[in-house]
Design a protein around this nucleic acid. Structure first.
Length: 442
DNA sequence: CATCCACTGGAAGATATGGCGA
DNA sequence: TCGCCATATCTTCCAGTGGATG
């Protein structure tokens, strides 16, 4: 053996990095037995060749909604194959359930196709805003059935034409079609597609195929805000996924650690601490807990240690939080970055909390100095509000009463620092008209 | 307890971009 | 080419509002 490469860490704790990745499906899913039982009841008709049921799943992010779905669908595909002894499943996204839209499609043309699973993440619709529309979901679904070169564009069509096209494609495929709409709350107020799909067969829009729709959401209120018509059909069955408790998170971590880490590199107590941190910060997200574990292992490796200590766990937690924050900032558009920049400037000058009007003039100055035209106060107000919703900016309402009036004051939220804003803006690719000259070390 | 300030935030319309089908 | 459609974001207008003040 030759010399050790500089790229190699002194110690190796992680034996299998795949285990920590987003789309890894463990052999067994822990602590979700009740949900699995209910879910099986929903999928059972498909196995028996009966019309599928519609269902609605809800629970916070990282509590296993997608994981259980993927797990059970793979099992269902296996079992169906065993039962019929031939390939009866055409699942376009089954193996890449957590992937992004749009994805290459492998929808089979098969005459034998008894079951087709179509999975769509409504959060990745080609809209710029955070909310998509029913129209876009319909377009995206149609595109799932088409080959890549035939894909429809996302605008320009009459809505009814899209729905008709969708029914045509569904009918052409035939068999049982299970449509899984992940992050379905990302479809704004317009729930047309959720109404149309489950009823399409009853309405005579399709005749060959049977459709089941499973909506997945992390917004508890979403389902309540749906129109009664949709609630009737889509929410035929409901499964609630509660948050993982700290002990459950620890169980999940132990399972991952057993598979992906060297034995002896982790202790029960360090896993318990990671579980507690994730539990507190993210209301029980297994994803978060696993990320922290991975990061802690990496930190330990970098330091040449063979064990994940409590200190590494806490360090990993802090680092992940910081990364998330920077990521959040980087995702903002130029207007919001400029607004954040102005707010960071106000922090440096110790002028916070600052009133919107004052902040707007600071913002205008920065933008004008850079040779660009600032947006009107009202629009600025909108952007600022969005930043508040994202949790990047704090808003406090003050009321000075008669002669003073009511107004809001703003400052960067607690975790935010002017430095974090600078770092994020510097790392942003599109800073074409974000004025970087104002970004200096505080 | 009515007043009244300085805002907030809803609504509507303008502008721009990008795309379809005839 | 023209007319239509979807989306995004800006601007203008203004009714409504919370609560300390008088």
């Amino acid at each position: 053996m030759g010399e050790k490469s500089v790229f190699d860490s002194q110690t190796n704790i992680i034996t299998d990095a795949v285990v920590f990745e987003e789309d890894y499906t463990p052999d067994e899913i822990y602590c979700r037995d009740e949900m699995k039982t209910e879910y099986v009841q929903i999928l059972r008709p498909i196995y028996k060749g009966r019309p599928p049921k519609n269902a609605f799943l809800y629970g916070d992010t990282g509590v296993g909604k997608t994981a259980v779905t993927k797990f059970l669908l793979e099992k269902l595909a296996d079992d169906l194959e065993k039962k019929h002894g031939e390939q009866t499943i055409t699942a376009n996204n089954l193996s890449i359930l957590s992937s992004e839209f749009p994805e290459p499609h492998t929808v089979a043309s098969g005459e034998n196709a008894d079951l087709t699973v179509v999975q769509l993440n409504c959060q990745n619709l080609p809209t710029k805003g955070e909310k998509g529309t029913s129209y876009q979901v319909a377009v995206a679904l149609v595109n799932q059935f088409l080959s890549e070169e035939d894909e429809l564009s996302t605008t320009g069509h009459a809505p009814q034409a899209i729905y008709n096209r969708l029914y045509k494609e569904i009918d052409r495929l035939g068999g049982t079609i299970l449509i899984i709409l992940d992050e379905v709350d990302a479809i704004g107020d317009d729930d047309t597609v959720l109404y149309e799909l489950p009823r399409s067969r009853a309405d005579g829009k399709i005749s060959e195929a049977r459709i089941g729709v499973i909506g997945i959401s992390n917004d508890y209120t979403f389902q309540q805000n749906l129109s009664p018509k949709v609630q009737d059909s889509l929410c035929e069955r409901e499964i609630r996924f509660p948050a993982y408790g700290a002990d459950q998170l620890a169980t999940i971590l132990r399972e991952r650690a057993d598979v992906g880490l060297i034995e002896g590199s982790y202790s029960e107590s360090s896993l318990a601490i990671i579980a507690a941190l994730a539990r507190r910060d993210s209301s029980g997200s297994a994803r978060k807990a696993i990320d922290i574990l991975q990061k802690a292992a990496e930190i330990a490796e970098d330091r040449g240690k063979e064990e994940i200590t409590e200190a590494f766990a806490r360090e990993a937690f802090e680092e992940i939080r910081k990364d998330e924050l920077i990521e959040d900032i980087k995702q903002q558009d130029a207007h919001k970055l400029n607004a954040l920049n102005a707010l960071a400037e106000a922090h440096r000058l110790d002028k916070v909390p600052i009133r919107k009007k004052t902040l707007h003039s600071t913002y205008s100055k920065i933008v004008e100095d850079n040779g660009n035209k600032p947006i009107a106060v009202r629009s600025f107000h909108n952007h600022l509000n969005r930043l508040v919703m994202f949790g990047l900016v704090n808003e406090v309402t003050e009321n000075r009463g008669k002669g003073g009036g009511r107004y809001n004051v703003y400052e960067l939220s607690q975790e935010m620092t002017p430095q974090a804003v600078n770092k994020a803006i510097n790392e942003t690719d599109d800073i074409s008209w974000v004025d970087v000259t104002y970004i200096k070390d505080a």
